[in-house]
Design a protein around this nucleic acid. Sequence first.
DNA 1: TTCAAAGTTGACAAAAATAGTCTGCTATGA
DNA 2: TCATAGCAGACTATTTTTGTCAACTTTGAA
Lengths: 147, 147
Amino acid sequence: MKLSTRGRYGVKAMFELALNYGSEPLSIKTISEKQNISEYYLEQLFGSLRKAGLVKSIRGAQGGYVLSRPPSEITVGDILDVLEGPIEISECIDDEDNCSRIEYCATRLLWIKIRDSVNQVTHSITLEDMVNDYKSMNIITSIKRGE
Amino acid sequence: MKLSTRGRYGVKAMFELALNYGSEPLSIKTISEKQNISEYYLEQLFGSLRKAGLVKSIRGAQGGYVLSRPPSEITVGDILDVLEGPIEISECIDDEDNCSRIEYCATRLLWIKIRDSVNQVTHSITLEDMVNDYKSMNIITSIKRGE
DNA sequence: TTCAAAGTTGACAAAAATAGTCTGCTATGA
DNA sequence: TCATAGCAGACTATTTTTGTCAACTTTGAA
């Protein structure tokens, strides 16, 4: 069980936007260079993020993307839902009909527990949390270096 | 993010063995018919489970598979680790070297939090728990039917 | 006003992972 | 001794992932 690159790249790119929140828009090109991700591929991901209303695009020269809400109001789960699709450990979670076998309930309950646990974590961590973690880690690193 | 059929089929098959624990071995054929899973494919999965020591095989006529430990001592996480590989939300969790980019720490911490959460859930649910859930659900269903 | 930067869209495709099939074995209990 | 059932591994079809690309639209700035 692992995240695809869509989820990983997407979160990293959104984190970049969060670090930059309040300043000028960041272009796909800038982000793709910072994160070493294919420019074309990132474009696709931002298309999805834009349609989902998580980012706003600003066209024209010096354009780019900005978060459409403050980092404190965007969770990692919001991003992953868009790029990975909602977590669906097993298909029969939502679809009760085609699952009439005898073990149905027992495994279904299990998948739901796993899904809820992941959702609980991802939807409780915001981009602001990540930025804060990042900043405090930098401070610690500086102290360790004796700066 | 979803489980592959390996994990889903494997858990269901192991649940079947748990229901049957203490009785005669179940053959691949029996399980594959109960669960409507390809016999050949199930064989592959049981090969992995056997090598990992989760099941024992009994060869010859009337042979089959049995759990190698009581259901209370096998967690869903044990099964998923074998069939899906350990959870690796992102590759850089274990591998610190090739990840020197600036946002490294912030996203890495995130992947670790998600991974730990899934592991916590899957490794705390045993086959016995599933069997108990299953049995109590059956009782409730019977009551509802007025039986 | 014009042009270049930047976003938008959708088609295309290589590569990897997944899911499943099959064949020919070996072991063993009845 | 033979039918049953596991063992091993090659093989393949399909799907998903991970990109790539080209043509087009919008718009800010010179």
